[in-house]
Nucleic acid binder design. Structure first.
Length: 197
DNA sequence: CAAGAGATCATCT
DNA sequence: GATGATCTCTTGA
């Protein structure tokens, strides 16, 4: 089974569409010879300069600069002094938007390509489930930190995504987390969750 | 269970 | 000087 790397054309689309389409895709993190795999189960969309929940709503700053860059690059920052958040920049250059990867299901290290449902007991093993659930835990599991900021993830280098061929059965929409300050944007249901079980 | 507090620092005002 | 796109642990019912 082929597992095509997601290209710029995938990310260079409306952000909420990308956020939904990312569910069921696979994160590959390579460190030396080791590879770690994760099936994406939860994302959030941050859409443009008018979205008050987005860091970019305050304008262009050194930190948010990458959000204004081309699609298919990472935007990684430190939150609360101790956790990292992994975002993927979307849409065209100079339009600041990104998708926060909030959760993934770690796959076995021997994973070679392709995913079929239902997942095996091993894939659903207790303990796996919680390892990358939540933006901070996900970055901890995949060892993602600011050294990977502004990385081109359309190339198989350190961190990239592939299409698993899997389609989520059902997508749950919820308001985004921790954005009470975002005025009329705080209740937008731009958080997308699915389950593979 | 649910609720609350603490950890800890880059970033922006 | 304040704050946050979080998580974990503790407390108490």
């Amino acid at each position: 089974m082929t597992n095509k790397i997601l290209q710029t054309s995938f990310y260079n689309r409306p952000t909420r569409q990308v956020a939904q389409d990312l569910l069921g895709k696979i994160i590959i993190r390579q460190i030396g010879r080791k590879k770690y795999y994760g099936l994406i189960t939860e994302t959030e969309a941050y859409c443009g300069p008018q979205d008050q929940a987005s860091h970019a709503s305050k304008g262009r700053t050194p930190r948010t600069e990458v959000m204004f860059g081309p699609a298919g690059h990472t935007y990684i920052y430190l939150i609360y002094g101790l956790y990292h958040c992994f975002n993927i920049v979307t849409e065209k250059k100079d339009y600041p938007a990104a998708v926060l990867i909030r959760g993934a299901l770690p796959l076995p290290k021997e994973w070679l390509g392709g995913v079929t449902l239902p997942l095996s007991k091993r894939e659903m093993a207790e303990g796996q489930r919680g390892l990358a659930s939540g933006p901070g835990k996900l970055c901890r599991y995949f060892k993602i930190d600011k050294t990977l900021n502004n990385l081109d993830i359309t190339k198989p280098n350190k961190l990239w995504l592939v299409d698993s061929g899997l389609k989520p059965q059902r997508i749950i929409r919820r308001p985004r987390v921790g954005v009470d300050y975002a005025g009329k944007y705080k209740d937008k249901k731009w958080r997308f969750i699915t389950r593979f079980s």
